[in-house]
Design a binder for these strands. Structure first.
Length: 919
RNA sequence: GCCUCUGUGGCGGAAUUGGUAGACGCGCUGGAUUCAAAAUCCAGUGAUAGCAAUAUCGUGAGGGUUCGAUUCCCUCCGGGGGUACCA
């Protein structure tokens, strides 16, 4: 007889389904606990072994919390809108709605095979109209509100229009890019279209001109990801930056709160730091420079106004609107050439090629207000249009990028900060003494910055300004497979909310992008045209829209009248534990926090932050094999052990002929053959660890592993692989260790030959209890601190110990089942029955370690002299440090004792070591 | 480039607060069992020297703090993830 996982798992899966074991009620006396997984995007490839890593961990934690007496919400759903489904549809002519549904069905089966305790009655899909109705509804809240800086929260836009009609925008404190002041009369004199455009400067969801990566040949907008070396990855066509009118979210309005509230949540410091850097708060000055021979002024942003005397040139972002106005006729050609070069470069390329300095001179000059010097104005791609004012004053003596630029173009460098007082300080540090700077000479940097800020304000040429790297997020996609915007335009082009939600995505046969760059939806004239001359917005929302609030829908997933009832929201409140990958660390989490804060401002959710605690699981990587073909390496799939890095010609040909699993190349591919010592031809295979992906042929499917070893084994092995938060490569070869463990566990309770039960009902003895309580103590600690790999080790040690003691007492079993439950729904039916009424499985209490079994009487202390181990000594545990010291002095056990050595100090370390410091 | 994490035996990893580095598992070696193999069980397994007791070295590289550093600090090198339209 052997442990038969197939039979056991099938039985329990149907049992759970029939008994709705995992269904969670919103009405409970118990305290709530909400454990959330980042829901998957259902791709055609199905789940690979990397996906369930976080799911297994959160499942263990959910079960643990249930055993601790909490009412645990642990739901799952699908992030079903997105680009891959759309691209798959374009290739295969299968509609994304169809392929997505198929994929979800597959994901469902795969997830159920692993035995998660999800409450599937709460499942949501972001592509379901009943769901995205509320995505659109929340979008309209963003559209209908602006950020009031005085109240420090979102406020209705209606209040703002009333105020405009009453007193114009003077004194309105709002998050806006609008800086000119208009009166009530002006406001009233405007056409509805003009008023609408003005309001776009205030709304939290608004339309503005943004730049996109435009590929003329493909007739579509591309992601940065789709661009390699300035051309499209697919086809190698040129890509240019093209302005388009698009929806954006005023993320910047919430920058300060998004930053400040990080202090209130329990996330890792690494993740918080990443979010802080993304928000990128900096304090400095906004400063206006006169431009010679021009009425317009140049506005720059700097964090170092103290270095203005070292500013030898100005740099504008190439897209800066002033460029066309100030360029001199003599420089027009140079600038245009440069602009067309920049237009071909993606944002990421511009940011990463720092070594190569490029730029062009506009021919214009501005005046330094403090010394009346003429300063040349350049444009360069290292200045970004979206950060600060898109213009900087360059101080080559104190900024590395400015320095490189000055050296390349022969611009003067004037030193203004003396750092000799601060050895080791980098250029970036705000330390040093100012020189060459008129009235600032001799001041410390901090003092000089303050002085300059005061001067700038007094002279009326600028002001203090807090700046954020965070930009307003582009929220439009010219795609089909996403939520349509609930927005319509009248004949004058004025935007209005659509009253009846949801605005359903119309079915379209052909969803290829339109050659004019518009969304495919624009081709469905019957959908675009509405009554009374209204037309619909044809862009769709990005995939982050649906995932920005899905955790709220799980609380009350079928509610037709609200995104969730107030009762459900007040019971579940927020997510207690959120588990997900680092790849979402910035964008998804920032969007979710933003949406949540808006909903909080409107009184629609009870908490300010959505995710109290967050654990980032690391990626499980695949091992990719590469074969040299021509002068490049290509991914291949081949059944070989990892340590085989050569592939012999005969073998290769045999593989091709026998249709062996050798994907990625065909028989005609020109492989680079080399000769070994004996003259046999071989090809070199190289292995690299990288993200699992279908195209890299390195995906491991969990179904195969589960079929062979069982779900419990799979789950434990995933945990055993390594720390949850770390990236690690998958290696199926060592799974038999965990498999052996489970079989050993089974064999504790059943006769391997006959299958008969071995249980006895006697009271366990002291040693048996000791093994058990040691395991309970350690596993509790391990689960609480999310160290699940060591938790598995602890189980193994405990089972080995019980096996050594030949223990099969029923009492131990009962507690052990409960202990075991976090890892697996226990697989032997008799053990389940042992818990009594099966429907109350989760009312069982997690056992608490009894310290009385764990006490030690005597401790063996290693004796160290100056940190080097020199022998051992036994002391009783209740001896005080003073007693131990006295004992050590009297001891003759210390070997290697040199004549004349004197004990200077006795250090007792953590009660397990004595260290003598001698001289 | 920038941000962030990470580096420990042949391999995955452990060491929870600065205190006996290498738990647990894989793999490997030897033995038991077997006609034989699989499976199972027992023993060994960082490196070097030694029959052995033991000694020296050893946590990416180099430096520092400390009686004591895988752990804290500085510099450098390698790998992973993110970088705003992949999700």
């Amino acid at each position: 007889m052997e442990y038969d996982h197939r039979e056991i798992e099938a039985r329990w899966k149907s049992f759970w389904k029939e008994n709705k074991t995992y269904q969670v009620s919103n009405d409970s006396e118990k305290p709530k606990y909400y454990v959330l997984d980042m829901f998957p995007y259902p791709s055609g490839a199905g789940l690979h072994v990397g996906h369930p890593l976080g799911y297994v961990a959160s499942d263990i934690f959910s079960r643990y919390k249930r055993l601790k007496g909490f009412n645990v919400l642990h739901p799952m759903g699908f992030d079903a809108f997105g680009l891959p489904a759309e691209q798959y549809a374009i290739q295969t002519r299968i509609h994304p709605a169809v392929s997505t549904a198929q994929n979800i069905k597959k994901y469902h089966e795969q997830l159920d095979n692993i035995g998660f305790c999800y409450d599937w009655s709460r499942e949501v899909w972001t592509s379901d109209p009943a769901y995205y109705k509320w995505t659109q509804w929340i979008f309209l809240k963003l559209f209908d509100h602006y950020y009031d800086k005085a109240a420090d929260k979102a406020m209705p836009i209606d209040g703002l229009t009333e105020r405009f009609a009453f007193s114009g925008n003077a004194g309105v404190q709002a998050a806006t890019t609008q800086e000119t002041i208009f009166s009530a009369e002006t406001w009233k004199s405007w056409t509805p279209k003009q008023q609408d455009e003005m309001l776009m400067n205030y709304r939290l969801a608004y339309r503005k001109v943004s730049y996109v990566n435009w590929c003329e040949a493909l007739g579509t907008v591309l992601a940065n990801d789709d661009i390699k070396d300035g051309v499209s990855e697919r086809g190698g066509h040129p890509v240019v930056q093209r302005p388009m009118l698009q929806w954006s979210l005023r993320t910047t309005a919430y920058a300060e709160r998004l930053l400040k509230d990080l202090d209130t949540i329990d996330w890792t410091d690494a993740l918080k730091t990443q979010q802080r850097n993304w928000i990128g708060k900096s304090e400095g000055a906004q400063l206006f420079f006169e431009i010679s021979g021009s009425p317009v002024k140049l506005e720059i942003y700097t964090t170092r106004p103290d270095t203005i005397f070292g500013a030898t040139f100005m740099v504008l972002a190439p897209e800066h609107p002033l460029v066309q106005q100030i360029v001199t006729p003599g420089q027009k050609k140079t600038i245009e050439d440069y602009l067309s070069y920049v237009g071909r470069r993606s944002e990421r390329e511009r940011a990463s090629d720092v070594k190569e300095v490029t730029g062009a001179f506009t021919g214009a000059y501005c005046i330094n207000p403090f010394n009346q010097q003429k300063v040349p104005i350049w444009i360069a791609e290292y200045v970004l249009k979206d950060y600060g004012t898109g213009a900087i004053m360059a101080v080559p003596s104190d900024d590395e990028r400015d320095q490189a630029f000055a050296e390349k173009f022969g611009l003067p460098i004037i030193g203004v900060v003396d750092k000799s007082k601060y050895p080791g300080a980098t250029l970036h540090d705000k330390t040093g003494v100012i020189y060459n700077s008129d009235f600032l000479d001799g001041m410390e940097v901090a003092e000089a910055i303050e002085m300059m800020l005061k001067n700038i304000e007094a002279m009326g040429i600028g002001s203090r300004r807090i700046n954020y790297k965070l930009r307003d997020s582009n929220f439009s996609r010219q795609r089909y497979w996403g939520e349509p915007f609930p927005i319509k335009y009248d004949q004058d082009g004025v935007s209005h909310a659509v009253e009846r939600l949801p605005v359903e995505l119309p079915f379209m046969e052909d969803i290829t992008p339109s050659p004019d760059g518009k969304s495919p939806l624009s081709r469905d004239a019957s959908w675009v045209k509405m009554d009374h001359g209204f037309t619909r917005e044809t862009d769709t929302m990005p995939a982050v829209a649906g995932s920005s609030w899905y955790f709220l829908r799980y609380m009350d997933p079928h509610n037709p009248d609200a995104f969730a009832s107030q009762k459900a929201l007040n019971y579940w409140k927020d997510v207690d534990l959120y588990v997900g990958g680092t790849e979402h660390a910035v964008s998804h989490l920032l969007y979710s926090r933003l949406w949540h804060k808006v909903l909080f401002d409107l009184g629609l959710v009870p908490t300010n932050e959505p995710f109290k605690k967050l654990i980032n699981q690391g990626m499980i990587q695949g091992r990719s094999l590469f074969l040299q073909v021509g002068n490049r390496k290509i991914h291949v799939k081949i059944q070989l052990a990892d340590d085989k890095d050569r592939l012999y010609r005969d073998k290769y040909l045999e593989m091709i002929q026998s249709d062996f699993r050798f994907e990625g190349i065909d028989a005609n591919t020109e492989i680079c053959w080399q000769k070994d010592e004996k003259g046999a031809e071989y090809a070199q295979l190289t292995m690299e660890v990288e993200k699992m992906s279908k195209s890299k042929y390195n995906v491991v499917n969990p179904d195969e592993v589960i079929e062979m070893y069982g779900a419990d084994c799979f789950r434990m092995f995933e945990m055993f692989l390594g720390p949850i938060e770390m990236a690690k490569p998958w290696d199926t070869r060592s799974i038999n260790g965990v498999h052996n463990f489970i079989r050993k566990l089974w064999a504790l309770f059943y006769d391997v030959h006959t299958g008969a039960s071995l249980w006895t009902n006697g009271e366990p003895d002291k040693d048996e209890y000791k093994a058990l309580h040691a395991a309970i103590k350690k596993t509790t600690e391990d689960i609480e601190r999310f160290s699940l790999n060591t938790c598995v080790s602890t189980f193994m040690i405990c089972v080995n110990e019980l096996k050594r003691l030949n223990c099969n007492k029923k009492k131990i079993l009962q507690e052990f089942v409960v202990l075991m439950a976090p890892f697996a729904p226990f697989t032997a039916e008799e053990l389940w029955r042992n818990l009594g009424n099966t429907t109350t499985v989760f009312d069982a209490k997690y056992p608490v370690a009894d310290e009385s079994y764990l006490k030690k009487d005597v401790v063996e202390y290693p004796l160290c002299i100056n940190g080097k181990k020199r022998g051992e000594a036994m002391f009783s545990v209740d001896m005080s440090p003073t007693d131990i010291e006295a004992e050590v002095r009297n001891m003759a056990v210390v070997r290697k004792w040199t004549e004349g050595q004197q004990i200077r100090k006795v250090i007792i370390v953590s009660g397990k070591m004595v260290n003598l410091v001698v001289n």
